[in-house]
């Protein structure tokens, strides 16, 4: 008899492995050297940004080139709350998420008036407006930026290893949190609706209004989480300036490459993409601009030959999925 299932033996094995993996990752500060810990924190940050962008572009069709607006906004909210209100950084991170959600409401109302690729450039303009506006704020250091005061940093631990472990755990929480969000969302009814609009025009027109509301909600949620990731980025850097905070290259271009190379519209894609990105960076970054040209060319080649990225190719070729979000039919003769 034919049966319909969500999980497969592989996805169950993957589930067990990921539990072990998460446990090992939580324990990193006790077993790894500082540089590894630092690298893994950065890995989690890019994993979070990539998963969030993928949710936006790959599932909702909202291709934003302006997510740096929220990365930078988060960073600035953190600095503002710390410097002027003396708040604990963890509280600031939560506030940054809230602030970004609030800001995203009117921004979405504006940029949602633009369709497709014009939406992309519209989001970019918004990010530019943020960058130029923060450059005008002399209280926050204007164009040259601001450093995080030492007492605030010490709130995360007096000793450097303690602080770094804390920052690492927050990054890990955000990385896994972003993945978990995408995973739960896609398994829910909303995920079903999103997949439907992506795969079928008829479905999208019949779901109509509801889909618009889902798009708004996803955009706002992604903005909030992106902003929280922005906090941890600048908590790690200890210094913020408009150009670094709202950099389209660092917070959007690389993220797009990660998702496109790994596989857009798949949960596994951003994970694989982040791994590939870190490997490429490790071995090619000293090539400088040529390295970036290679990334650009790789993204073009993948988009033209395997639009669902490397993971899309693998999963189609061998019919595997690590995260069981879809349903599969098992045919038995």
């Amino acid at each position: 008899m034919n049966t319909i299932t969500r999980s497969t033996r592989l996805s169950k094995v993957a589930g067990v492995i990921s539990v072990v993996l998460v446990a090992a990752l939580i324990a990193v500060p006790w077993w790894a050297v500082a540089s590894t810990e630092h690298l893994l924190a950065e890995f989690c940050i890019y994993l979070a940004l990539a998963s969030l962008w993928n949710l936006l572009a790959g599932y909702t069709g909202l291709v934003s080139v302006g997510q740096q607006a929220y990365v930078g906004l988060g960073g600035y909210v953190l600095f503002t709350c710390s410097v002027f209100l003396g708040l604990h950084p963890i509280l600031s991170i939560l506030l940054a998420g809230l602030a970004a959600a609030l800001v995203a409401v009117p921004v979405a109302a504006l940029v949602f008036r633009l369709q497709g690729a014009y939406f992309a450039i519209g989001t970019w303009v918004v990010a530019e407006v943020f960058r130029l506006s923060f450059a005008q704020m002399t209280a926050l250091g204007g164009g040259s930026g601001y450093s995080l005061p030492v007492p605030i940093i010490k709130m995360l631990g007096d000793a450097k290893p303690v602080r770094e472990a804390n920052i690492y755990w927050i990054s890990l929480a955000l990385g896994i949190g972003a993945l978990a969000l995408v995973y739960t969302l896609l398994r829910s009814k909303i995920g079903l609706a999103l997949t439907a609009i992506r795969d079928s025009e008829i479905a999208s027109s019949s779901l109509g209004v509801k889909i618009d509301r889902i798009k708004y909600a996803v955009y706002i949620a992604v903005a909030a989480l992106t902003s929280m990731v922005g906090c941890i980025i600048f908590l790690q850097k200890l210094r913020i300036s408009p150009d670094a905070a709202f950099s389209v290259n660092d917070w959007t271009a690389f993220v797009i490459f990660i998702v496109v190379i790994g596989g857009i519209g798949t949960i596994e894609g951003p994970i694989l993409g982040t791994i590939i990105y870190f490997l490429l960076r490790e071995y090619l970054a000293n090539l400088g601009s040529i390295y970036l040209m290679i990334l650009g060319a790789l993204a073009i080649v993948i988009m033209l030959t395997a639009p669902k990225g490397i993971w899309g190719y693998i999963s189609k070729r061998w019919n595997i999925a690590l995260f069981p979000v879809g349903y599969r039919i098992n045919f038995k003769d």
């Binding site: 291709v63 497709g116 690729a117 271009a253 797009i256 496109v260 993204a299 073009i300 988009m303």
Partner: peptide, 10 residues
């Protein structure tokens, strides 16, 4: 809309 957008981005 993704392929033209992402290819020209690259």
């Amino acid at each position: 809309i993704l392929p033209p957008l992402l290819v020209t981005f690259g």
